[in-house]
C-alpha cells in the first residue's frame, strides 16, 4: 500500500483544515491575475523582465555533483532570479491560515522556498518567479480571506488587534479598503507604496464561513477541549499530540551528564 502522509491529527474542523493546508489540497475561491499579484508584491513592474543575480544554470556549467543531478532546479533558480519575498498578516479573528500553517504549506508544497514564522506574520522567500507563483496560490485559495489576511511587507501590526467596524483587519498603512461593491481592494503594494490602479482581491468571507475554514483554535469557535468554562475538558487529539511531542523533546533535550 502506498504511503499516505497524515500531516496532522485531530477530529475538529480546525484539525481538518490544518491537514488541508499542509497537504496543499486547497479549494480555489478566486482568480487574481498574475499581473495583479506582481503589482501587490511590488518587486518588479508587471510584464518587465526578471532581474537576475547569476546567469542561467545551463550557461554556467555546474560542477559534477550527484545532488545537483538528482534535484531539478526550480524555474527561478534555473533562470538565476533574485530572491524575493511575500509576507502575510493573518488576523487571529478566525483568519483561514494562521502563520504556522502558511509555513507548513510552504515547507511541504513549495520547492526552493524559505518560510519564516513570526508571532503575527509569515514570510516566504524564494526565487522571484517561484515566489510569484506561490503567492498566487495563497491569494487565490481558501488560505486567504482578503478582509482577514493582507500581504504586508512591513508595518505588519494587525494580527492580534480588534477588527475595524467593517470587519477588515487593522492596518496602519491602509493598504486595503472595502469597496462599495463589497470587494476588498489593494490600494497600496505590500510595503505601502500607492498603486496606480486598485487591485481587486475578491469578496470577504462571511463570519460563518471564516469560522468554518479557520485553522486557529479559539474559545469562541472551536477550542482545544470544549468550552473554557466546562468542568472537564476533553482535549483535541491535535493538542494531545503536541503535548506528546513537547514532552519527548523536553526529556530528550535534558541530558544531565
Amino acid at each position: 500500500m502506498a504511503y499516505k502522509p497524515q500531516y496532522y491529527s485531530g477530529t475538529t474542523s480546525v484539525g481538518v483544515n490544518r491537514r488541508k493546508h499542509m497537504s496543499g489540497d486547497l479549494e480555489k475561491l478566486r482568480d487574481i491575475s498574475d499581473a495583479d499579484i506582481v503589482t501587490i508584491m511590488g518587486h518588479r513592474a508587471p510584464g518587465s523582465d526578471y532581474p537576475s543575480t547569476h546567469p542561467p544554470l545551463a550557461e554556467m556549467g555546474e560542477p559534477d555533483c550527484p545532488i545537483r543531478q538528482l534535484v531539478e532546479p526550480t524555474p527561478g533558480a534555473a533562470a538565476g532570479d533574485r530572491i524575493r519575498y511575500s509576507q502575510f498578516t493573518d488576523s487571529m479573528y478566525n483568519a483561514p491560515s494562521i502563520p504556522y500553517f502558511r509555513s507548513y504549506w510552504g515547507a511541504i508544497n513549495c520547492r526552493g522556498c524559505d518560510p519564516g514564522t513570526l508571532s503575527g506574520r509569515q514570510i516566504i522567500e524564494a526565487r522571484e518567479r517561484d515566489i510569484e507563483q506561490y503567492t498566487k496560490v495563497q491569494m487565490d485559495s481558501e488560505m486567504t480571506d482578503p478582509a482577514l489576511a493582507t500581504m504586508r511587507g512591513c508595518t505588519v501590526h494587525g494580527h492580534s488587534l480588534r477588527l475595524d467596524e467593517d470587519g477588515m483587519m487593522f492596518d496602519m498603512l491602509s493598504r486595503t479598503e472595502l469597496g462599495s461593491d463589497g470587494n476588498v481592494y489593494y490600494v497600496k503594494d505590500q510595503v505601502g507604496i500607492p498603486l496606480d490602479a486598485k487591485v481587486n482581491a475578491g469578496k470577504p468571507m462571511s463570519e460563518a464561513e471564516t469560522s468554518k475554514r479557520t485553522t486557529i483554535f479559539r474559545c469562541d469557535n472551536i477550542s482545544f477541549g470544549g468550552p473554557c468554562t466546562a468542568e472537564k475538558r476533553t482535549l483535541d487529539e491535535g493538542l494531545i499530540t503536541l503535548h506528546h511531542m513537547w514532552e519527548r523533546r523536553s526529556k530528550w533535550g535534558f541530558r544531565p551528564e
Partner: peptide
Amino acid sequence: GPNLPKTVPYGPG
C-alpha cells in the same frame, strides 16, 4: 488605540 502614522515608518516606502 493603535497609532496611525502620517508617513510610512519603515521599508522601501
